[in-house]
Design a protein around this nucleic acid. Sequence first.
DNA 1: TGTGATAATGATAACCATTTTCATTACTGT
DNA 2: ACAGTAATGAAAATGGTTATCATTATCACA
Lengths: 144, 144
Amino acid sequence: MAFEVEQKILDDFVKNKGLKHSSQRKDILMAFLRTEKHLTAEELYSLVRKKNPAIGIATVYRTLKLFCDCGLSRELRLGSEAVRYEHLYGHEHHDHLVCLTCGDFIEVVDPEIEHLQEKLARKEGFTLQGHKLIMYGICQGCKE
Amino acid sequence: MAFEVEQKILDDFVKNKGLKHSSQRKDILMAFLRTEKHLTAEELYSLVRKKNPAIGIATVYRTLKLFCDCGLSRELRLGSEAVRYEHLYGHEHHDHLVCLTCGDFIEVVDPEIEHLQEKLARKEGFTLQGHKLIMYGICQGCKE
DNA sequence: TGTGATAATGATAACCATTTTCATTACTGT
DNA sequence: ACAGTAATGAAAATGGTTATCATTATCACA
Ligand SMILES: [Mn+2]
Ligand SMILES: [Mn+2]
Ligand SMILES: [Zn+2]
Ligand SMILES: [Zn+2]
């Protein structure tokens, strides 16, 4: 529960950019790391307020952007709703399979799909830097 | 340039739902079909105004939703910007390969990737209904 | 260990795409 | 023609996010 590595990633990034340390960012980082859920800024804000009720939503937004910049997190846009954030550091790359009925989703990855994407992009003259694959369907539970 | 088939799809949909015909919707449909670009509501609004300057942006939004409902168009969310719409009827399914530098994108499809997605979803107990694959990279032109 | 420069914060206003509201107009079946 | 109701356009509202700004906190260095 210490997350020293993640804290160091943030601290180093902050130092390299000539930024300053803040306790709010640490509170936000801890709340973010302590859950494996894919949270929106608002949801994370609610969590952090339990620890630090004085914190502002703007700081949460600013800090989530910082997490993305330093490689700790990644944005997820599943639909038209608010952006969700998930852990990036220490987590394998994966895509998402979303249930259209209950909204739940699972994380999936297929190395062959990943490889074929690379091949496809190269064929078109692109240097692939990333991708977003979201599959939509009906989950087992919702079919019953 | 007549698009009788597409017009019929819309007319039938409207009739089946007990809705009423309107000239605005026809103007919007024609402007939409006449371009192969992936337009935002605002962009389509600009086009339609040349033909019908009295039209309102709300009607464009409402009508684009209708096009999606009747299978004439499909939403595209490439990033955090406005939603874009592309033709669906009469167009093969495809995904997009977006250049992170110039913003241009090309349409691509790989049957093998499509098939593997289906297989992956089934393995997880999902009945796949659709997917969204966007690949991001640097295009040939931007590398030079 | 102070002090000045400047980054970070929180409240709030602004932003922007989209949706809703509502009074008015246009269709449509009879 | 008429009644019933869907569609429209203007404008306000919405919701997520970003910008502004006065105040506070951090930190390199004197
Ligand atoms: Mn995930
Ligand atoms: Mn396309
Ligand atoms: Zn489900
Ligand atoms: Zn390019």
